[in-house]
Design a protein around this nucleic acid. Structure first.
Lengths: 267, 267
DNA sequence: TTGCTCCTCACGTCACGTGAGGTGGC
DNA sequence: TTGCTCCTCACGTCACGTGAGGTGGC
């Protein structure tokens, strides 16, 4: 009647999602009520939509319709996001397979230490995008409201751990013109010093999903010259999602801090 | 550079998807070549699209571009199908939650044994839809080509196991007008006798994803009257996907073979 | 010499599916 | 009494993530 498998019914019993109306004390036989048919059918649809069992339980035990609809809407929204993600990945894959090798020049820069208005947080890769938007919106608002003046493009610091362990303390910042001391620091913002460094810089033009390509080009370049990494990777957002709609117009500088080394033979 | 996690790289080594260029004999340290960066980036994109590791490996080791594109296209097609499936499930969920209780009458019928042109196969639920379309197309073609005459609407037999174990021998058939003996039986088709039975019948109007609702209504009705199941469930396709485009126009009779029993007190 | 990085197990995750081996109910 | 159904473990699936505990390299 429900088109659920026996194994699924047993599992739903084990995890308490759909308890049989009666379980025989001696044989262990599960008996269900006819009223449970409708419940089972709803469960099946949510599971077909890959809603986690815990959430299905939450839907079924929701105290009221509002709460119930809220959980459902949240799940549908997540599915939409995932679909959007898939679309961008397909587009990115297509670009990679077409393999237009760009020949943007790699640039070397020595930058001095600067003061910046910053927000720092420990974030995972999965929650990163949302965090990024929120952090820069807050920084821009703080800048607009206060007496501080921008001294350069938006930037961020990513320790190597962030890409490798998928979780690390990341810093989003806006460089300031001057020391910025004495000004109020609202919300999560704080004043920090971004240290000076020698940077190998490569401009990435286009969607952020393709950025690993540029990372690859820059990384290979640096590795082949036997240059070590010295501190967190920096990104500078010359044209970002906050500025324009079309991802094709984004401009991001990837800055690889290098430690000059005596040249290695090979490796 | 690749934005792959360390754990992922180790896993890809273990399963032979991306072998390090060199593994230190003593420390076990993995070393990669700069040429592997691009490969890793491609791997990441395919994995982001949930392509199974085995298939990614097949793409990377494909003997030529044609074969490679074929694997990729097949995966993208599967994703499309899945998306379509999701859409229909969302629609079905919406209909269920709106819970319009239909009051289509349940009908009792005693049907005689008939001869039918049939295709029988052991199929799983997942491959069922494709099989169904293929089977009826072949049956219709055989009917059109031969001297046999249709004696009723398309039908199919489903043993209880099919819904519970997700895999069983299913029979698709076209009832014949007469015995059909002596006629050629091309391809997978064969002549069978569909036994007579007492049926409780409920008409399902609309999309096939909603059919469990009708199954539920019919099943509850039968169970509450203490009637036992006697043989495989039948479906009769009065208006099917082969006839019309809009799922809302489908008409399917669900036939529950019943064994008359002396009434039980309760249960 | 001290951290830091890399390593190897072994186990967890999630929602069931897959047997093996056993028993109840008609 | 014979099948058939239902049961309970225990383990497999898939692609890693999560520690624990240990070691190499600078």
């Amino acid at each position: 009647m429900t088109h659920l498998s026996i194994k699924a019914l047993r599992h739903y019993h084990d995890v308490g999602l759909l308890e049989p109306a009666e379980v025989d004390r001696w044989s262990g036989y599960r008996r269900y009520d006819t009223t449970q048919v409708a419940v089972a059918q709803v469960i099946r649809r949510f599971r077909d939509l890959e809603m986690p069992v815990d959430e299905v339980r939450a839907v079924l035990t929701a105290p009221d319709g509002d709460r119930r609809n809220q959980i459902i809407a949240a799940h549908l929204e997540r599915m939409e996001e995932q679909l959007e993600q898939t679309r961008t990945t397909v587009a990115s894959l297509r670009r990679v397979l077409e393999a237009r090798s760009s020949t943007v020049p790699i640039d070397y820069r020595s930058v001095p230490a600067i003061t910046a208005l910053a927000i720092r947080s420990t974030v995972t890769v999965s929650e990163f995008e949302r965090w990024w938007v929120g952090a820069f919106q807050e920084l821009h608002a703080a800048l607009a409201a206060g007496s501080l003046r921008r001294g350069g493009p938006d930037g961020a610091l990513y320790p190597g751990d962030f890409f490798e362990l998928e979780c690390a303390e990341v810093v989003a910042y806006v460089p300031l013109d001057g020391s910025g001391s004495g000004a109020p620091r609202p919300g999560r913002t704080e004043l920090i010093e971004v240290p000076g460094a020698d940077l190998a810089v490569l401009l990435h033009s286009g969607a952020l999903e393709d950025m690993d390509q540029t990372y690859g080009t820059l990384g290979i370049h640096v590795v082949e010259r036997g240059l070590g990494v010295d501190g967190p990777i920096r990104e500078q957002y010359l044209v970002s999602p906050l500025d324009v709609e079309d991802p094709g117009d984004y401009r991001t500088e990837i800055c690889w801090p290098i430690a000059g080394r005596t040249a290695d033979p090979g490796d």
